[in-house]
Design a protein around this nucleic acid. Structure first.
Lengths: 124, 124
DNA sequence: CAGAATCCGTATCGATACTG
DNA sequence: CAGTATCGATACGGATTCTG
């Protein structure tokens, strides 16, 4: 994390923190991962992310769109088609996200061991 | 983000995703930043992170402890003292977190521009 | 000092119904 | 197809009180 001089991070309403909150939540990361392989349509994303409701998908896509991470393009066919894709800004997020994701892949075993130790300790 | 072969990421109950949810939430990142400068006592952290309640602080510290990110050490003085510190595992999170944080520092202006554009569009 | 326990309002979420 | 609108359940956060 940032060194001490970045004490701004410790303020709850720091803009960077608020931004992280909007980008790093559960569904955002999953949508991000899906769209990184290319544009997708609304129901296509919904099928890919089993478990998400259309409400949650709409809300999350709107937020990502508002923050300039994904682009929304309406195709005026009948029935209508809406295609979502990553913006250039969104694509630049790939590297930091990937680093974080790979940390979990590498360290998950150690985390799971820690959990077992903790749970056994707290059981008594 | 991970390439397509990491399709596991798209499953909602993927262990890596669940882990990210536990580590990347609002207060965890702030506590993480605070402890990176050295061990701290309970109320010391509380004072540093203005705005956090005891309840939230306790809950978050417990979760970080359970995941092996922070260590809890009781000093049997009177009154009691409890010191929290980063584990080796926790310290290894610094790099990926920092990368993400620096992305927000660099790209926040562009995000804010995108927000203004979006808000103006949706106003009409 | 470092918490555990409790109460309570609200923000969030899923399910459902409806629409251009 | 791609949403919007609504409603009830509930998970969650904050404030408060109490304790070793």
């Amino acid at each position: 994390m940032a060194p001490l001089k970045h004490r701004v991070l410790q303020v709850a309403d720091c803009p960077s923190r608020l931004l992280l909150d909007e980008l790093a939540d559960k569904w955002s990361v999953l949508i991000f991962a899906a769209l990184n392989d290319g544009p997708m349509r609304f129901n296509e994303i919904k099928r890919t992310l089993e478990g998400i409701t259309q409400k949650a998908l709409t809300q999350t896509l709107r937020r990502l769109e508002r923050n300039g991470i994904v682009a929304r393009r309406v195709v005026e066919t009948s029935p209508i088609a809406v295609e979502y894709s990553m913006t250039t800004l969104g694509k630049s997020l790939k590297k930091p996200f990937k680093a974080l994701y790979e940390w979990t892949l590498v360290n998950l075993p150690e985390v799971e061991t820690a959990r077992q130790v903790f749970d056994i300790k707290s059981a008594r």
